[in-house]
Design a protein around this nucleic acid. Structure first.
Lengths: 155, 155
DNA sequence: TACATCGTGGATATATGATGTCCAAATTAA
DNA sequence: TTAATTTGGACATCATATATCCACGATGTA
């Protein structure tokens, strides 16, 4: 039940793009360097965000990425689903349907499904704008005074 | 953000013990067979539940396990923490303290911490008794009519 | 057209943690 | 003492998250 590095990368990227909201595209390289994300891995994450319709991408010189929606229209739930797929706390709710010996008489199933629903509602109620609003005003300045490694998210 | 097999095993074991609540201990072997849990793995899970003070164990002949609390006193949060440790959605809140380049100016940290708190509250509000109450009355009968494999929880 | 720029897609490696196994030691009843 | 049972730890295995690489596709510019 933890936030993967991938999700952390996605959220930070969207936050970064959100603050740049000037219509111009941003290079993947710039995102990777500013957010300390391995470039070749970020490429994969960006593809997922593009496919999910959250960011816009453009090929060639002057290409790059920009948000396709406003920061307040992008919820954590959308971001989660873009990079991790549908949130499913237990396997017995997956597309294959009932798949457990105990499902026909399982007291856990409903309980986890309700928790899952509540969690989805929470994730759906928080937007990238909310996160931007919580960031401090002079990120660059503070960033340069902190020399520690990037160990933000869990694996 | 999924329920591990270990957690599933723990919950099902506690549910099973809860329904047997007659003061008598239950053999690990019986739990393992009835719940389709690998015996040698269950041994590990039981140790964690004992250590957490949720179940009582007794050595030797006529030994086995029984609940140390009533089913309504055991919350999912307690069970989660017994087998998975403290729930922590992002690493930057762990005992090592601030450990991320962005922490000093991170908009995500507070957000995830709030979500974590809400999730803990939800887990703390659900008890083993709630799960027992949702199980059907004749589990054995239904169990034998279902020949599929046990694929209940995620990995 | 030719070329440089930059994202796309897929194959593949690596690391980490969850899951599972095994065996000897500790404890207790009879 | 002997058998039954849990305990503890070392070890093996497997799945998945994370990361890397390279050739290809698309686009702007000359």
């Amino acid at each position: 039940m933890i936030v993967s590095k991938t999700l952390d990368y996605a959220v930070r990227t969207l936050t970064y793009l959100g603050k740049r909201q000037s219509g111009k595209t941003v290079l993947m390289k710039e995102i990777a360097e500013s957010q300390k994300i391995p470039l070749s891995y970020l490429a994969k994450v960006m593809r997922q965000l593009v496919k999910a319709g959250i960011v816009f991408s453009e090929y060639g010189p002057n290409g790059g990425y920009s948000l396709k929606k406003t920061p307040s229209e992008i919820t954590l739930r959308q971001v989660y689903e873009a990079v991790e797929g549908t949130l499913r706390m237990v396997e017995c709710f997956d597309v294959s349907g009932i798949s457990c010996v105990f499902t026909s008489c399982c007291g856990q199933a409903d309980v986890w499904q309700e928790i899952e629903k509540k969690l989805l509602d929470i994730l759906g109620s928080i937007t990238i704008q909310d996160i931007i609003a919580r960031e401090c005003v002079y990120p660059e300045k503070l960033l340069f005074t902190n020399k520690s490694e990037n160990k933000h998210a869990n694996s």
